[in-house]
Amino acid sequence: MRAFLYDRPTAVDEAVAAVAADPQAAFLAGGTTQVDLMKDGVWTPDRLVDITRLPLRGILVESQQLKVGALTTMEELAAEPVVAQRLAFVREALLHGASVQLRNMATIGGNLLQRTRCRYFRDPTVSACNRRSPDSGCAAVDNVARMHAILGVDERCIALHASDVAVPLIAVDASVLVNGPAGQRRIPLTEFWVRADEGPSIENVLGHGDLITEIDIPLLPQGWRSGYLKVRDRASYEFALTSAAVALQLDGDLIADIRIALGGVGSVPWRAREAEEMLRGTPVDPLRFEQAGRAVMASAFTVPGTAFKVDLAVRTLSRQLLTMTEAKR
C-alpha cells in the first residue's frame, strides 16, 4: 500500500475543502472497498480524509421518504423498522449483501460508490483495463468473465456494478444529496452512474471533492408490495449472478403499477423501464413476465462466460414476479 497522509475532519465543509484542495486526496468511509483497493495497489491516493466522524449518520423518517445519512451503515438501515414495513426489498437487498461484519462497516453512501469486483480491474499487473487506464483495452472480454455485466457494456469494458441495495434504491427513484466545492446539489440515482459503454473510465457524475451526505429514499405507497430475489452460486456471502428488485401494486388480477430494477447484469444498477411499461396496467400473465424480461435483455452484450446471464436474468425477474403475484409458471 502506498504511503498516505491521514486527516480526520469533524465538519463536512472541512472534509470537502480538504479533498478539493488536493487532487491526490480522497474521502475514506467504511473502507471495505477502498482499503482493499489500496492493498491491491489499484488505488493509490496520497491523502485520505476520513469522514467517518462527520455528523452524517442516522435515519430521519418522514411521511413520504427516508432521509438517510450517508454514513449510516448497511446494518443500521436494515434494522430500521420503517424499511421493513415500507421498503421490504431494500431490507432484503441489504441483508443479502456481503456479511454482517462488512455491513457493520460499509456505509450506504460508500455502497453506492463501490468499485467493480472485476479481477482484471483489481490486478494492477494486468495492463489492459479501460476502467483503470483509458484506451488500454479490456482483459476481461478476452479471458475469464462470469461475474461481469451484460447491460450497459460493450467490448471496451464489461465491469459490473455489484451493489445489491442500489438495485431497489434505483427502482424507487432514490436520490443523493451531494456537497461539493460548488455547493450542494441533488442527483437522482437514475442519473448518478455512468454506463461503461458511455465511457468505461468514468463511473459516476461526482466531481473531485464531491461528498454524498444523504440518500433520500421515497417510501413505497401503502398497498404496494416489494421483494428482492438474488441468484448466486453459494447460499450466502457472494455477489449476485443476477438479481431482481420488484415493487408493485396489484388491483385484483391487474398490475396497477410496478417498478423493476435488475442487479448482477449492468455496469450500473439497472432500472428496467421497458419491463415496467410492458407490465403496467396489464393482467398477471407469466408469459408476459418473460417477454418483459426479454425486452430488457434485447440490448445485452455478452462474452462466452456471461452468455448464460441473459436467460438467468429473465428467469430471475419472472420468478420474482411469479412469487409476488402468486401466479403459476
Binding site: R119, V126, N143, V144, R234
Partner: peptide, 24 residues
C-alpha cells in the same frame, strides 16, 4: 480459473474462488 492467454490465475482470492460457507 486460468487466463487462457497469459496463464495468470483469474480468480485467486476468497472473494472470487468460492468455498462452501456455513449456509451451504
Amino acid at each position: 480459473l486460468t487466463d487462457p492467454g497469459t496463464g495468470r490465475v483469474a480468480n485467486g482470492t476468497f472473494g472470487d474462488y468460492l468455498v462452501a460457507v456455513n449456509a451451504d
